[in-house]
Amino acid sequence: MPSIVELTQSLVTGVGIGLIYGLIAIGFSVIYNASGIVNFAQGVFVMLGGMFAHSILTRYGLPIWLSAIIATILVAAVGVLVQIFVINPRWRRNAPLFAIILATLAVQLLIEQIVILTLGDQPRTYPEFTSGGPLKLGPIAIPYQLFWVLGVGAILVFALTQFFNRTPMGRALRACAQNREAAALLGIPVERMLIVAFALSAGLGAIAGILITPTQYTAYLIGTPFGINGFIAAIIGGFGSPVAGLVGGIFLGITQSEAIVFFGAGFRNIISLSLLLIVLMFFPKGLFGGFAKKA
């Protein structure tokens, strides 16, 4: 039986990684709600965020905050390109669902290979945003980076909620989510909204990647696991509000890290994927409600 300290420590780790999953989950929901598409290449944005930030940091010696902002903008631009060149041609033609899924998977492969060719295949990392730490609470260690993740996560969720509820563009996006045809009839430029959704979603993924890199590493292949876990978090949260996505992520993060304590690291994926299957089958609207649409 694992000790209380072990369990608590893994709880801390779980919350940290869970927040990251949550941010990715919100990215999934933003696109899904605006277009009905699940972008299976979502994890690539996470990977690009970390890779770009690292490159800017090391090559141009810019401060981390500036590198982070530039990297986020660049990844958002990649998101826009993906929407325009890959998603839109199919979306316009009403391509079958799995053609779009396959297309997003192909995009993932494409971007990963381009990254290997241009930035290399070596894993890389950079220091935490605030040096020193971790914060010691008795036997429990809390890395400073966790506070950054918490803070940025809270600010983003607050900002997104405001954006969706208060701004005309946010409301337009929500209108697209509820009824695309009606939104188009009301004069909302649906295709442009999709571009906004992809930019937003890619940016969120990038921020997640930038935040997680100091405590782990980034490399061309981290996209898939982050994408899958982000999707699981989105399913648990129910594809609804930003808060639901974040809560889904934290739930998944904690489940995962506790599962490692009990069953060993090899079972991490098996546990989280089984969790996904259970939620899909028994709670198809997510554990935490939300205004989930039927697929």
Binding site: V38, F98, I101, I232, L273, L276, L277, M281, K294, A295
Partner: peptide
């Protein structure tokens, strides 16, 4: 399950 949910459920089956 339908649509993306089915796709993801089966995908995770393969991963498991």
């Amino acid at each position: 399950l339908r649509g993306h949910y089915l796709a993801m459920a089966t995908f995770s089956l393969g991963l498991i």
